[in-house]
């Protein structure tokens, strides 16, 4: 209530006063709610006046990060950690900045440091970040182990289920991936989990179950190419090439309409590569794949690219 009364006072004053000059010359902000540059300037002043605290340094690091200035962000976070060495949020932030600027080794060091400082209940996000680092370096088994540890230690975030399933698939454990994704989906319905579950079922040879699950998406929806391609994969698995080809033809027609050659949507390109591949047109698939492997690679989920690459290899 005291807050409310203060606010009333504030508003009443705001109305009763004419702060004309303030409105006219509102060119310099000394407070939050403005661009990162202004925030940094304000934080610089505050740090100069009061000395650096971990909180101020972390806030400034966030602003540097917003401007893509990772070196400065990293420096501030290092300083912040010197002040507050056991802060797990700071350690996570520092590690993610290092990841973002491509410093896998540095990130690993930060995470390892964090794991020595963290209580058992705080370790899960660090372990997930370690899994991500290991995945980037191609050490999938160790990445999966870290992921499993994290998910056993805390209530998993939805993305963690995807990471775990992706790692399982990289290790060829498709059925296990399907099972874990099904469990995750049944607990928290999410269409991305469902898609990966269906893909994992197809990869695991559970074609009938996959078809049952995806039928609703092929019957409804404005654009169905992605679902028609998944259905075709399952139908090919069930040795129904004619049905598969019909679906693939429809999918390719839709994709030709949707793909904007001037502004490529990588996910659509990947869908087309898969459709070509399933139709047996390896050359056309290779063309799309080559484009995806270039700068567009970062725009495609790792699991999708890995699946494409695997099927491309297998098609030889």
């Amino acid at each position: 209530m005291r807050r409310l009364l203060q606010k009333e006072t504030n508003m009443a004053n705001s109305r009763s006063l004419q702060i004309c000059a303030i409105a006219l010359f509102a060119s310099v902000s000394v407070i939050a709610h403005d661009s990162p540059e202004h925030e940094i300037e304000a934080l610089n002043n505050k740090i100069a006046a009061t000395g650096a605290t971990a909180e101020l340094l972390a806030r400034r690091a966030t602003e540097w990060r917003a401007l893509g200035k990772y070196d400065q962000a990293s420096q501030d976070l290092q300083k912040a950690l010197l002040i507050k060495s056991n802060s797990i949020p700071l350690i996570l932030e520092y590690a993610s900045v290092e990841m973002e600027r491509g410093g896998v080794c540095a990130a690993t060091g930060v995470i390892e440091y964090g794991l020595t400082r963290a209580q058992e209940t705080e370790k899960a996000p660090l372990q997930m970040m370690m899994a991500e680092v290991l995945e980037r370096t191609g050490v999938h088994d160790k990445a999966l182990a870290e992921c499993e540890k994290a998910m056993a230690g805390a209530e998993p975030q939805l993305e963690w289920h995807l990471t775990r399933a992706r790692l399982m698939c990289r290790l060829g454990r498709h059925a296990q991936a399907a099972t874990t994704l099904q469990a995750a989906y049944e607990k928290t319905p999410n269409v991305v989990l469902e898609i990966e579950w269906i893909e994992a079922m197809i990869d695991a040879g559970q074609y009938g179950k996959a078809l049952e699950r995806l039928v609703k998406y092929t019957e409804r929806g404005r654009w169905r190419s992605a679902w028609l391609i998944r259905r075709a994969r399952a139908e090919l698995g069930l040795n129904r090439p004619a049905a598969a080809q019909a679906g693939l033809t429809a999918a390719l027609a839709e994709l030709e309409h949707r793909i904007n050659p001037a502004k490529l949507d990588t996910t659509l390109l990947a869908d087309r590569a898969m459709a070509h591949l399933l139709r047996g047109d390896r050359d056309a698939a290779a063309k799309d794949l080559d484009r995806i492997r270039g700068p567009l690679k970062a725009h495609l989920p790792g699991s999708t690219l890995a699946r494409l690459e695997r099927l491309f290899r297998d098609s030889l």
Binding site: Q6, N13, I19, I22, F25, A26, S29, V30
Partner: peptide
């Protein structure tokens, strides 16, 4: 007219 803008949310 010098001066700047007051904070978004202030208390008197």
């Amino acid at each position: 007219d010098p001066g700047t803008e007051p904070p978004e949310d202030f208390y008197i």
